[in-house]
């Protein structure tokens, strides 16, 4: 038996909108720790890891570990039927091939049940070790989204370089090239607008903008995004989900031929 009641149901709606472009089908894993997902895109270039901790739910019952395969477009279709202020409850019986999403209006005057068929998904689970990163950039998520969008009208790839001067996003294409530099900027009264750069050593990596743009669909979940870079590792683009967990996107770099 599984029963997870999320008062801020809009979080789940936003999570789905953030990942459904990248991943079509995925297993949601439910355990005593929380509700989680790990999935790669079809070309195995990017990986998304989601965690919604058990403590973040108003009610969290998960009698045994359960993995539920869902088509994310179908799940998004159902969650779009929930109001932004609705409480969402996810329910499943052991051994069942369906999951039920229950939507309750804040005044409790409307209750809806949407039952969705589960699917068998043979997915690979990767072990991601904790790493020390050469540079960690924290910046407003809306700013990062704007930069990725602007650069993708010029080129296909972005070079992200961190030096003590700041973080530079560069691209080039047929029509020309572009460089955007963001310097450290810690505004005490508006922490959500801060740009903070922690650099152990300078780092410069190249990534496909198509994926970066897809990651920025998570911007509505968090005012800030954290970008962790090391020369030998995929970049980690993390959006914290208010007191509940996170959504992390891992993207393998491009290298010179």
């Amino acid at each position: 038996m599984l029963e997870l009641r999320l008062v801020q149901g809009s979080l789940l709606k936003k999570v789905l909108e953030a990942i459904r472009e990248l991943v079509t089908d995925a297993n949601f894993d439910c355990s005593g720790t929380g509700f989680s997902l790990q999935a790669m895109d079809s070309s195995h270039v990017a990986l998304v890891a989601l965690l919604l901790r058990a403590e973040g739910f108003e009610h969290y019952r998960c009698d045994r570990n359960l993995s539920m395969g869902m088509n994310l477009n179908n799940m998004a279709k159902m969650l779009r039927c929930a109001g932004n202020d609705d409480i969402i409850t996810i329910k499943a019986d052991d051994g069942s091939d369906t999951v039920t999403f229950m939507f309750e209006s804040p005044k409790q005057d409307k209750i809806a049940d949407f039952e969705m068929k589960l699917m068998d998904i043979d997915s690979e689970h990767l072990g991601i070790p904790d790493s020390e990163y050469q540079a960690i950039v924290r910046m407003p998520s809306a700013e990062f989204m704007r930069i990725c969008k602007d650069l993708s009208s010029i080129g296909d790839t972005v070079i992200i370089s961190v030096t003590k001067e700041g973080v530079k996003f560069s691209t080039s294409g047929e029509i020309g090239s572009a460089n955007i530099v963001c310097r450290q900027n810690q505004t005490v009264d508006k922490p959500e607008e801060a740009t903070v750069i922690e650099m152990q050593e300078p780092v410069s990596l190249t990534f496909a903008l198509r994926y970066m743009n897809s990651f920025t669909k998570a911007s509505s979940l968090s005012d800030q995004v954290t970008i962790s870079l090391s020369s030998e590792l995929p970049v980690v683009v993390e959006y914290k989900i208010a007191e509940m967990g996170y959504i992390r996107f891992y993207l393998a770099p491009k290298i010179e031929e």
Binding site: H44, H125, L126, I128, Y250, A252, K254, I255, E257
Partner: peptide, 14 residues
């Protein structure tokens, strides 16, 4: 431009 690496080149299956 450049060769796109795969995420599985960095992280192994559990």
């Amino acid at each position: 431009s450049g060769v796109q690496l795969s995420i599985t080149e960095f992280y192994r299956s559990k």
